Simulated scan of single mutants.
Amino acid sequence: MDLSKMVDQRLVQFDLDADTKEEAIIKIASLMYDSGKVVDKDAYTQGVFEREKEFSTGIGMHVAIPHCKSSVVKEAAFALVKLKNEIDWGSFDNKPVKLVIMLAAPDDGDNIHLTMLSTLAKNLMEDEFRAGLLQSESIEDIKKVLKEKGV
């Protein structure tokens, strides 16, 4: 899976201003809706919140990967957002989150979201990859980190 080709500038934001996990999810869901990736912002947001209730998507090391598989998703996508201020996400390591990668996948029987999720989670465990994303300041930086890793 070539995630570097899936980077959509409408879904990348630096210094997103959010004070809570819920506020961040709502704002990122708006990006998904405004970009046309989802057709019902409220249903998508609710799906992400429902998934978050099951188990926090804060994977640790200042990163969270909230996600949702839903019929309101038109095409698989991910938003990559650096937060202006770190926020508590309920991560297993109790560290606040600075980078949010939010996934959206259509509920069409395909498990592309699992492929995206596992690819990202596996690579985010590597310090160099994670640091590259955390230090990125442009879409080009993000694409470079993904391409160099072959993700």
Rank of each mutant, 00 (worst) to 15 (best):
M32A: 14
D110L: 01
M6Q: 13
E86V: 00
K5L: 12
G36C: 04
I112Q: 13
T57W: 06
Y33Q: 13
K5S: 14
S138I: 02
I101C: 10
E22C: 02
D93M: 05
E22T: 11
V48G: 09
L11K: 09
L117A: 08
V81E: 07
L83G: 03
K41Y: 07
V72F: 10
V145Y: 11
L133Q: 12
D141C: 03
K69N: 03
K149V: 00
K98Q: 14
L31N: 07
A64N: 12
L80G: 06
D8Q: 07
D127R: 10
K69E: 13
D19F: 06
K5N: 12
S4Q: 07
M32T: 09
V63I: 15
R51F: 01
G36S: 08
A43S: 15
L134Q: 13
D40F: 06
V72E: 08
E137A: 03
K37M: 11
E137H: 08
E140Q: 14
E86C: 00
M6E: 14
F49M: 15
V151C: 15
L124I: 03
E126T: 02
F49D: 05
K69F: 01
I112M: 08
T115L: 09
K84E: 13
E86I: 00
P96K: 14
V100G: 08
K82M: 01
E126Q: 14
K122V: 05
Q46E: 15
H113S: 00
H113G: 00
I25R: 08
L146E: 05
F55Y: 14
T119M: 03
P106N: 05
S4G: 01
A24Y: 04
V12F: 12
I87Q: 11
E128L: 01
A77K: 05
L99M: 08
D40A: 09
G60V: 04
E86G: 05
K122T: 13
E128F: 00
A18Q: 08
D93E: 06
L133Y: 13
G47R: 06
M32R: 07
K149S: 10
D34G: 07
G132W: 09
K37W: 02
K74H: 10
T20Y: 09
E50M: 05
M32E: 06
I59L: 13
L114Y: 02
G47P: 10
I26D: 15
F129L: 01
E86N: 07
L3D: 07
E75N: 11
I101F: 09
K5V: 02
A18H: 11
K147W: 00
I112E: 14
E137K: 15
Y33W: 14
I59G: 13
G132C: 05
K149T: 04
I142K: 10
K27C: 01
E86S: 13
S30F: 01
K122Q: 12
F92S: 03
S70D: 09
D141L: 04
S70Y: 02
S4H: 12
K84L: 11
S56D: 10
I139D: 11
L134G: 07
